[in-house]
Design a protein around this nucleic acid. Sequence first.
RNA 1: GCUCCAGUAGCUCAGUCGGAUAGAGCGACUGCCUCCUAAGCAGUAGGCCGCAGGUUCGAUUCCUGCCUGGGGCGCCA
Length: 577
Amino acid sequence: MADLITLLSERLAAAFDTVAGTAGNDPVVRPSDRADAQANGALPLAKQLGRNPREVAEAVVAAAELDGVATAEIAGPGFINLTIDDDFLGATVASVAADERLGIARQASRRIVVDYSAPNVAKEMHIGHLRTTVIGDAVVRMLTFLGHDVIRENHIGDWGRPFGLLIQYLLDEAAAGTIDLEHLPLHALDDAYKAANTRFAEDPEFAERGRARVVLLQQRDPETIALWTRLVEASEDYWTELYGKLGILLTNDDVVGESFYEDLMPKVVQQLHDAGLLQESDGAQVVFPPGFTNRDGDPLPLIVRSSAGAFTYATSDLACVADRTGRLGADTLVYVVGAPQSQHLAMVFAVSEMAGWLTPPAEAVHVPFGNVLGPDRKMLKSRSGDPVRFIDVVDEAITRGVAAVAEKNPELVGDARESIGHAVGIGALKYFDLSTDRIKDYVFDWDRMLSFDGNTAPYLQYAHTRICSLFRRAEVDRATVRSLAPQVREPAERALAVRLLGYEAAVLETVERYSPHRLCTYLYELSSDFTAFYEHCPVLRAESDEIRLSRLALSDLTARVLAHGLGLLGIEAPEQM
RNA sequence: GCUCCAGUAGCUCAGUCGGAUAGAGCGACUGCCUCCUAAGCAGUAGGCCGCAGGUUCGAUUCCUGCCUGGGGCGCCA
């Protein structure tokens, strides 16, 4: 435990209890711009005791055991400003540097299913898949690092009427000789998917054959399933390519599509019936979870079987919950799904609890996010008005990253330019998405995301490369500086050291709220602190060997935290750029 | 109509469990490279924290109401 806030809180809590004469008082220690930290707890305590706040603060300081840790000073109406002792600061930094986990302990392991990305078979992924994919992947990486048993699930759309229609369309076209079933690239499937829907609406004979094909699919007719399987495989190949370029952990092993839940849905409905939760409403089988109302103020149903007898996406989502807590034994279900699904998921979770599929302490969490907007502040569209293809965005990010690297550092050529440019471009794309509060919409802007100034991936990556460059020039093995306690004297050194010790809190806070932008903000502040340090404190030309090594130690830990933090976000940290 | 989310500098965004003088980046203006990567650093200017009440020693933060924008509200997923 290297977190200064926690450490100071513990030290001061005892003093607060002594002064208050009661237990459990909160010292309210917070980061401060006037000291390394400040304790605000004396003000409410004074109020409670009916005493003067400054007197209370003084009594607390007198009772506090801070020797060798920090000095305290009363300021203003009763704030306690805390300044960490330089030696203690250096020693604490050293304890983090000696730890491969950078001071972050493993948590009590939970089994956590993270549901993210969720593309559709035979359809292009579009810009709408960017956020769920990137945020979900960062969440997976962070939870895994904290020691949890994380199960990635890619809940693909692979079943139901659209696929019956698509298959019938493909068979018709193959018979007419306009399509080669042996050669079905994804863009052709995407076209066919749309064409099948159009033909369904316009051609009654096709509509009839299509419906029949839907039934054959449901019945798992071998010929139909054979073609369906190829559609799925073609789509998986496509996703694999995209995820590979983007650096996403999802693989085909993580695919659990709607088709998987097909068999479970009758059981789900049966269990709802057995539990007495099922009601008939306008010919549909529904559950009314308490607390949800429709536009007329009447109870709002979750429809698990339509009046036509079909299962709905609600049924499939319920089956999903039951499967994840049941078969997989998950404690926590995380859904990285857009904000518009908020009510739907809340209802699914509510019904799951009613049915006993989601029993505390098991919990389901919706991690919602806003939209990616175009310059007109509306949903991002391509010039033609079609949705922007995800793969095009990924490719353009790489192209722009390579171009940026080529421009800034012409000496980098060949494979190095390509791979570093890739890391910069993809990093920029991901970081731009992750660095704003996920609940808000953001305006997509290539220039800003690839800027080397401000809160961007290239800025962070550059800070990292500067440190790597220092070590190349110093000809010092980085591992050798990890066992020494840096001297922390200069303001820029202190600021950097204090920031380094905040990494644990930043990560824990980020995970607790499933808000990657908190980690981004931390890493940006760390980079800023480092560049200020780099500017004001000569490293290689320090006045003594001792200070040189000390500053190399601070630099090394900074680079490790940067690379590690970026890694948790799914972003690479090249050694040069 | 009900409900969820958002509203902070000209622009793009942070702001932790209620703490002191609300912070960055861009843009504007000033300085700083014979010196570890100037892809940078230091500084200046720029604010009705949507509006109005309330709670509190203290409110951008919590509560209520309103305004603006977006989403959701029975058989699509």
